[in-house]
Amino acid sequence: MEYVKAFLVGGIICVLVQILMDNTKLQPGRIMVILVMSGVILGALGIYAKIEKFGGCGATVPLSGFGFNLWKGMKEAIDQHGFLGLFEGGFTAASVGTSAALIFSYIASLIFQPKMKK
């Protein structure tokens, strides 16, 4: 059942973004920014936690989940360290995804060569 829910929730998020893309001329970069920010905002409003509870990875795998994660990290840091947490929370929460992407990509740049578009 969890699998079906994850598929469903992840799929629906993608469909919403697809509709946004098809009806505006937004470039992928902007779309990703919008997604992350909506994750942060929905996270702060407590809505995204509900989506995650229902959809599991269907909610955490999309980039909006990355934003949600950012907010969770921020909230935790503020709860623990107050004002200092404002500067601590974001990167702590984003660290795994960002580091993984940077580290693997750097290694990939050493291994792979640019290829022709087919």
Binding site: M21, P28, P114, K115, K117
Partner: peptide, 8 residues
């Protein structure tokens, strides 16, 4: 975009 980047 870079050639390896996916977009529609």
């Amino acid at each position: 975009f870079p050639l390896e980047y996916g977009n529609q």
